[in-house]
C-alpha cells in the first residue's frame, strides 16, 4: 500500500514537472531545471513500479532465515575432500563479507586433512535467500596436489543449504525420536565414567539420522543434533510444498535438487561456470576467496524473479 501511495505521488510530480517544462512563459533556467528533475523522477517511477511488481510476486518466506550449510566430498577421493574444504572456506569468507555469523558445526577430516564432510550455521539477514542457490553438485577440474604425474582430475563436491527452523516450525515429539549415546549398554549412571559425549538422534517416522560428537557434553551434542534435525525435516516439508507449487511452473532453478550439477570450477583455465544461468567468471581465485560469488547469485536471483513473473503472467 505504501508503495502505491508513493507511486501515485511520483506520478503527480511528473505531471507537474511536465507542465512546467512545456509552459513556455517560464524562464529558461527554470525550464532546464524542471527537465532535469523530470528525468530523475521518471527513473524513480520506474524503480517504484518494479518494486511494486516484485512485492506482488510470491515470496519464499524462508529467504530471511539463517541457514545450515553442509558440504560433502563426492567422487574423486582425497582430491574431492580437499576441494570440499576449499568450498567450505569459500562460504565462510563469503559469510564474513556479508557480515553474517559463521559457526562450524562439525568437520570430518579425510586422510590428507581435507574435509570428508563439513557443516556450519550461517546467521544473518537474508542468509538463506542468497545461499539457497548453492545447493547441488559443484565440479572441480584441476591437478591435485596429491597427484605426482600432473594429470588433470575431475571430482565433485555436493553442497546443501537448508533454512534453519525453530521449535514452532518443526515440533519434534519425544516418541518419534530415538537417541543413542555411547553409554548405551551396561548399567550406566554412577557405575560408568567416560569422556565420550557423542549423540545420535534418529527421527523414526522419516528415518532421518543426525550424529554429533564435537561438543563436550552430551546435552550440548543433543541440542545441536536436534537443531540440524529440525532443519532437515523443515526442508523435507518445504520441498514437498515446492513440488506442489512448481508443477504450475515449467522451468525451475534453485530447486535444491542435490543431484543437479550446478557449477564447474576449472583451475587450469582459471574459470568458474554456472550451468544454470550459463555465466562464466574468469577469476577463479576471487571466487574461491568468496569475492565474486555475487555474480552468480545475482544472476540466479534475477532468473528466479523472471520465472516468477513468467508464471505470474501465465
Amino acid at each position: 500500500m505504501e508503495l502505491i501511495k508513493e507511486l501515485r505521488s511520483k506520478q503527480e510530480e511528473i505531471e507537474g514537472l511536465k507542465s512546467l517544462v512545456t509552459n513556455a512563459c517560464e524562464e529558461k533556467d527554470m525550464r532546464e531545471m524542471a527537465a532535469e528533475e523530470l528525468l530523475e523522477t521518471v527513473e524513480e517511477e520506474k524503480r517504484l513500479q518494479h518494486e511494486l511488481f516484485r512485492s506482488l510476486l510470491p515470496k519464499d518466506e524462508a529467504d530471511e532465515r539463517d541457514c545450515i550449510l553442509e558440504v560433502r566430498a563426492g567422487t574423486g577421493g582425497e582430491e574431492a575432500s580437499l576441494f570440499a574444504m576449499d568450498i567450505f572456506r569459500m562460504y565462510e569468507k563469503y559469510a564474513q563479507k556479508n557480515g553474517w555469523k559463521f559457526d562450524v558445526i562439525g568437520i570430518m577430516e579425510s586422510a590428507v586433512k581435507g574435509y570428508k564432510e563439513a557443516s556450519g550455521t550461517i546467521s544473518g539477514p537474508g542468509a538463506f535467500g542468497k545461499l539457497k542457490f548453492e545447493s547441488g553438485i559443484h565440479r572441480v577440474q584441476r591437478v591435485p596436489v596429491t597427484e605426482k604425474s600432473g594429470r588433470l582430475h575431475t571430482s565433485a563436491v555436493s553442497v546443501a543449504v537448508l533454512p534453519q527452523a525453530d521449535e514452532v516450525d518443526v515440533q519434534l515429539r519425544n516418541e518419534d525420536l530415538r537417541i543413542d549415546t555411547y553409554r548405551s549398554g551396561g548399567s550406566g549412571g554412577q557405575s560408568v565414567n567416560t569422556t565420550d559425549s557423542a549423540v545420535r538422534v534418529t527421527h523414526i517416522p522419516t528415518g532421518t539420522v543426525v550424529a554429533i560428537q564435537d561438543e563436550r557434553s552430551q546435552h550440548m551434542n543433543k541440542a545441536k543434533a536436534l537443531k540440524i534435525l529440525r532443519a532437515r525435516l523443515y526442508e523435507i516439508e518445504r520441498q514437498r510444498l515446492h513440488m506442489n507449487r512448481s508443477k504450475l511452473r515449467s522451468e525451475q532453478i534453485g530447486s535444491g535438487d542435490r543431484s543437479e550439477r550446478i557449477r564447474t570450477y576449472n583451475f587450469p583455465q582459471g574459470r568458474v561456470t554456472d550451468h544454470r544461468v550459463g555465466i562464466t567468471h574468469h577469476s577463479i581465485a576471487d571466487v574461491m576467496e568468496g569475492e565474486n560469488l555475487d555474480v552468480f547469485i545475482d544472476a540466479l536471483l534475477l532468473q528466479e524473479e523472471m520465472d516468477a513473473i513468467a508464471s505470474f503472467a501465465a
Binding site: R183, G188, G189, Q190, N193, S217, H219
Partner: peptide, 9 residues
C-alpha cells in the same frame, strides 16, 4: 567428589 554423569543432565 563424584564426577557428574551425562544421564543426570
Amino acid at each position: 567428589v563424584l564426577i557428574p554423569r551425562p544421564e543426570t543432565e
